[in-house]
Amino acid sequence: MAFLLAISAGVWAQQEERENPDIAVEGQIPPGELPRPLHLVPVESIAVPEEPGAPSGLVRRVHLYADRAHGCGENSLYLVAEMRCVGEDGEQPHIVGIFSGYTVDEEKTLELSDLDGDGFPELILRHERGAGAVYMRIFRFSRKPNISDSASCITVSPMLKQVGCCRTGIGSVTLEGDGTVVVKTYPEGGKLPASVERYRLERGKDELKEVE
């Protein structure tokens, strides 16, 4: 997994430098300031359906890893996408996102579901954080081939873009059969929800919209 971090760090550094030309990006880390080692444990994987005649450069599989080697604080969850690239023999993995937290017990961590009704699924990631906070993150797959930049590094975030993040401190975030995300928040010790919010992902949109 070390090469994943190197690729991802290089891409982020280049993007940061392009957007903020006054920021100096160091090429090396001074001795004694190396980051702690990562010990990534595979949690779950999911295959993305491939449409007939789909071009190279689309995400084929998504994996979730957890850094669980250090017993203090929260875990870090690493969302990794694999895509087949032109001229490559196999899928190339790239880090899409890093989230603090841990997986939800007795629930699917990764799930595919067509939320906007366009015939192709979105990716759903469920995880928790401290104090019972529950998260549901929604990502949209790109249907267009990836375009490499001049340094031959692949920027994966447009290929698997987060279009929604719903959370609640004490409550639940669930997905209904019609693609509606329902967020219920309960008062401490209460049995009836203090609020119920509903969200939908409209076709062609890149963010969830609250609905009545």
Rank of each mutant, 00 (worst) to 15 (best):
4 L>W: 13
7 I>R: 14
8 S>I: 01
9 A>F: 06
12 W>E: 10
15 Q>E: 15
15 Q>P: 03
20 N>T: 08
25 V>K: 12
31 P>V: 07
31 P>E: 11
33 E>Y: 15
33 E>Q: 15
33 E>N: 13
33 E>F: 15
35 P>K: 00
38 L>Y: 07
39 H>R: 07
44 E>L: 00
47 A>V: 10
47 A>Y: 05
48 V>F: 09
50 E>N: 04
51 E>P: 01
54 A>P: 00
54 A>S: 09
58 L>E: 09
59 V>S: 08
61 R>Q: 09
62 V>R: 05
63 H>Y: 06
63 H>F: 04
67 D>T: 00
73 G>F: 05
73 G>Y: 04
73 G>Q: 04
73 G>V: 04
77 L>F: 01
77 L>V: 02
82 E>A: 05
83 M>F: 15
84 R>V: 02
85 C>R: 15
88 E>H: 08
88 E>Y: 08
89 D>A: 10
90 G>C: 09
95 I>L: 06
97 G>E: 13
98 I>C: 06
99 F>G: 00
106 E>F: 02
109 T>L: 08
109 T>A: 14
109 T>F: 08
110 L>M: 05
119 G>R: 13
119 G>V: 13
120 F>H: 14
120 F>T: 14
120 F>Q: 11
121 P>T: 04
125 L>F: 09
125 L>E: 03
127 H>N: 10
128 E>M: 06
133 A>K: 11
136 M>A: 08
137 R>L: 14
137 R>V: 10
139 F>L: 11
142 S>N: 14
142 S>K: 13
143 R>A: 15
144 K>V: 12
144 K>L: 12
146 N>T: 15
147 I>F: 08
150 S>F: 12
150 S>K: 12
151 A>V: 07
151 A>Q: 12
153 C>H: 13
155 T>E: 12
155 T>I: 07
156 V>G: 01
157 S>M: 07
159 M>G: 11
162 Q>F: 01
164 G>I: 02
168 T>N: 07
172 S>P: 01
172 S>Q: 09
172 S>G: 03
174 T>W: 05
175 L>Q: 11
176 E>I: 05
178 D>M: 09
183 V>P: 03
184 K>F: 07
186 Y>Q: 02
186 Y>M: 03
189 G>M: 04
192 L>D: 12
193 P>M: 05
193 P>Y: 03
194 A>L: 11
196 V>M: 04
199 Y>D: 00
200 R>A: 08
201 L>A: 06
203 R>D: 10
205 K>W: 03
208 L>W: 06
